[in-house]
Design a protein around this nucleic acid. Structure first.
Length: 598
DNA sequence: AGGAGGGCCGACGACATTTG
DNA sequence: CAAATGTCGTCGGCCCTCCT
């Protein structure tokens, strides 16, 4: 192991610099050689321990440096955490409280009072705005301590704080744990068993017990600590782009965004019609490419559940009381459960398309676009009369185009007025006791549909909010941490090759996907052996049957252990061969696009 | 036996992200 | 954009371990 004191001293630089490299490095499938080689050399039968992985990681020139930097960072954090806890405990210590009481009882003019008061004020200052270093210093440095010296052996016969003549302090407590832990680390890394020799008997005994303690720590905490590190390694994506932290940074970020948008609007205005179309087409192409790539990267995490490290599809999915109730009603009265998807704009509070069907049979009750007898400009008027931003407008126009098609939307087929929709819903037998399932985080779909229907004078047609079951939370509960719950990514993963793949954001296909996802969820919540997958496509059945628990730590680490469906694999190869868009926020991406289009 | 250190956990709140 | 959810750090309370 190449770790040494210098590494620890320069950890800040190392860590910061290596952070991004590491991300790219591990994301690139070609660079995982060191792990694969390691796996081959050991053979499949041999159990791979966490220690083996750690060794492999440490041996790698890049990943090793990163890992060591991380470990030293965590050690430092541990130290800070200890200081914080110690400080917190010291402040709530009865003697500290006593000390404050004594101060109140003192004569304000006396020298004792002045000294004690100064100390208390300093304690409060450090407590509120002091740095961790200050806290550490005052907790450990016997010469510059600020809290009462509860633990000093020198105080055994003396006073512990001004005005105190009370009992002796109990023990001389070991304050060197931090140092010893670091010593132990260094000693292990050097592979050198020699310890610093201490002449003092009491410290020697202390060392033996400390060594015992740390031997135990090594077995339990070290394993835990490393496992946590490895886990974090996968889930660290969010931290790569530093967020603006200070007010000033936030202000600057906002200004930057605004000026970018202004520039973009200007440039767009100067472009000819053709150029604009070309730009938009190019942008949407690039965006979908980068979205696909993102989805693919995320999909690698699908077999890496955060805590219990088991393949998501291979285990029984969790459920909750509300969903149990829903399932009970579904078993009792299938026809009362409906699936709903509404294409709408939250800003305008307008509905563009409604699809309603039965969950069990998939029978479609309503699948119509809403007739709006007005021009696009009128349709896009904000309710409060404010002007709409460039981006908002572009997004809305995109939605409209997606729903109504590119030609005149008043010539679309299947247009219905809100009143006609209301009638259809009533005729289909929807009652206020029906249960409505939506693919959403909230009940917004149902709310807007209700608004639409009530605007035509039909009341008490739709069930109340409580009868609406948003499916996203149900799925999210069972997906690995940070795994997307977007239907357009989740559905292709679970139903690879299904004809509905790629037909998102139209109400009709959306409810069909919602139906399949809901029925699948019900099956996934059963123990694997009791599942009835006969209603689902062959590929889905295979995926679920084949999802296996990763056998070794090594499999878990690079994300092996879950077979990607063949179609998705093909797409993966295709996507991987595209030129890589440099990773960054959407803004950067658009910036590049603008430059490209010139 | 009882006090001190210190870890763990849930509650909480500020802030970020993810959806449509 | 708005709502829901996720993340992260802090705090108080509780409990375990160690020490004399």
């Amino acid at each position: 192991m190449a770790n040494n004191r210098e590494d620890l001293e320069h950890k800040d630089d190392v860590e910061y610099l290596e952070d991004d490299n590491d991300e790219e490095y591990l994301d690139d499938p070609d660079n995982k050689d060191f792990l694969d080689n390691n796996a081959n050399a050991r053979g499949d039968n041999e159990t791979t321990t966490l220690a083996d992985i750690t060794r492999a990681l440490h041996a790698d020139p890049i990943a090793g440096t990163v890992l060591r930097a991380r470990i030293s960072h965590t050690l430092r954090e541990r130290g800070n955490k200890k200081a914080r806890t110690k400080w917190r405990h010291a402040l709530r210590h009865p003697l500290t409280l006593e000390y404050r009481k004594k101060l109140e009882a003192m004569l304000p003019g006396s020298r004792e009072y002045k000294v004690a008061n100064k100390r208390i004020q300093e304690i409060d200052r450090i407590n509120v705005m002091g740095t961790e270093a200050e806290k550490k210093k005052f907790l450990t440095n016997t010469l510059k301590f600020i809290l009462p010296r509860f633990y000093s052996s020198q105080c055994k016969t003396g006073k512990r704080y001004p005005g105190d003549g009370g009992p002796d302090p109990q023990v001389e407590t070991d304050h060197e744990s931090d140092k010893e832990w670091e010593d132990l680390q260094l000693q292990q890394q050097d592979g050198n068993g020699a310890r610093h020799k201490r002449t003092n008997l009491s410290t020697k005994t202390k060392n033996i017990s400390a060594r015992k303690r740390f031997a135990k720590m090594e077995n339990e905490q070290r394993q835990k600590f490393l496992a946590k590190k490895l886990d974090q390694h996968h889930h660290r994506k969010a931290n790569t782009n530093p967020r603006p932290s200070t007010e000033e940074e936030k202000r600057l970020a906002k200004l930057k965004t605004r000026s970018f948008r202004e520039r973009q609007s200007k440039r767009m205005a100067n472009l000819s019609e053709e150029q604009q179309t070309a730009f938009k087409a190019r942008k949407s192409e690039q965006r979908s490419a980068s979205e696909k790539l993102k989805a693919l990267r995320k999909s690698r995490a699908f077999d890496l559940p955060s805590q219990h490290q088991r393949a998501a599809l291979g285990r029984q999915w969790r459920t909750n009381p509300e969903f149990e109730q829903f399932k009970a009603q579904f078993a009792q009265d299938e026809s009362s459960i409906l699936i709903l998807d509404v294409e709408f704009s939250r800003v305008l509070r307008k509905v563009f398309e409604v699809a309603l069907g039965r969950l069990k049979s998939g029978k479609v009750l309503v699948d119509n676009r809403i007739r709006h007898d007005c021009t696009d400009t009128e349709l896009l008027n904000l309710p409060n009369g404010q002007a709409m931003g460039f981006m908002t407008r572009s997004i809305l126009l995109g939605t409209l185009k997606n729903v109504y098609g590119s030609s005149d939307r008043r010539k679309c087929s299947g247009l219905r007025t809100p009143a006609e929709i209301a009638k259809m819903i009533i005729e289909a037998g929807v009652t206020p006791t029906s249960i409505i399932v939506v693919w959403h985080q909230s009940t917004m779909d149902l709310d807007l549909l209700r608004e639409l229907i009530e605007s035509t004078g039909y009341y008490n047609v739709l069930p109340p909010k409580v009868n609406c079951i948003p499916m996203i939370p149900q799925f999210r509960e069972n997906l690995p941490r940070k795994f997307t719950a977007k239907l357009d990514i989740l559905f292709p993963l679970l139903f690879a090759g299904h004809h509905l793949v790629g037909t998102n954001h139209r109400a009709g296909p959306d409810i069909q996907m919602l139906r399949l996802m809901t029925l699948l969820l019900i099956q996934l919540q059963k123990p694997p052996a009791e599942r009835d997958l006969s209603d689902f496509p062959g590929t889905t059945q295979e995926d679920i049957m084949q999802a296996q628990v990763p056998r070794t730590e090594l499999q878990k680490w690079p994300g092996i252990g879950f077979t990607l469906a063949p179609t998705l694999l093909r797409e993966a190869i295709q996507v991987a061969s595209w030129p890589l868009v440099k990773d960054g926020g959407d803004k950067d991406e658009s910036e590049e696009l603008i430059k490209d289009s010139e």
